[in-house]
Amino acid sequence: MGNEFIQHVTDNLRVAHHQGLSATDLGRLAKELLGPAFGPVSFVAVFRGAFGIPVDVLQRALAWQGFNFGGSAISDDEFTDLLAEWVKKPEGK
């Protein structure tokens, strides 16, 4: 997994967000685009790169039920609320 690949996924997340995808949809898209490279480090890299979300917030977001990393899961709504400051609804959407 190289920097170009991470940048490609980051760019795709920004475009998808501009098109109106929610935080949970963006999380699912990141998982899909990263494929076998998906994991905590790659998730943090692409969401931090795309939206400037602080690492400590992204660490909490890793508990989202959509990622199935185990441990205590947070719901779709909790994931969305956690990232809301950085992943806002685009203008006009």
Rank of each mutant, 00 (worst) to 15 (best):
R48D: 01
S72A: 14
V87H: 03
V57C: 13
F79C: 05
N68D: 14
I74A: 08
K88G: 05
G49H: 01
N68H: 15
A61Q: 06
R48K: 15
L62A: 06
A61I: 02
G71M: 05
L58P: 05
F43S: 04
W86Y: 15
L58Q: 01
V46N: 12
V46P: 09
D77W: 06
G49I: 00
K89N: 08
I53S: 07
F67A: 02
A84Y: 02
G66K: 09
K88S: 08
W64L: 07
E85A: 15
V87L: 10
A45G: 10
L82A: 06
P90Y: 02
G49N: 04
A50H: 06
D77T: 07
R60H: 11
E78P: 05
A45C: 09
D76A: 12
A73P: 01
S72C: 11
V44Y: 04
K88W: 04
E91P: 03
G92W: 00
G49S: 11
T80W: 02
P54M: 14
K93Y: 13
K89Y: 03
V57A: 15
G49P: 00
F51C: 06
V87E: 04
F43H: 08
V57S: 13
S72T: 14
A73N: 09
P54G: 14
G92Y: 03
G70R: 15
R48W: 03
K88E: 08
W64E: 00
F67L: 08
I53M: 11
E91D: 11
F79L: 12
V87N: 05
F47P: 00
G92N: 11
E85G: 14
Q65I: 08
V44P: 03
T80E: 12
S72Q: 15
F79K: 07
W86M: 10
K89C: 08
F47E: 00
V44W: 00
A63T: 07
A73I: 02
I53G: 06
K93S: 06
F69G: 12
D77P: 03
F79Y: 14
A84T: 05
G52Y: 11
A73F: 06
D81W: 02
S42H: 07
A63S: 15
E78W: 04
S72P: 14
S75V: 02
V87M: 09
T80D: 11
A50P: 05
V44N: 06
W86Q: 08
A73K: 12
A63M: 11
G92S: 08
D81C: 06
D56K: 13
E78F: 01
I53P: 00
V46C: 11
R48Q: 13
A61D: 01
E78K: 13
A63W: 04
K89S: 08
F51I: 00
P90S: 02
W86A: 06
A61M: 05
N68T: 09
N68G: 13
D76P: 06
I74P: 10
L83N: 09
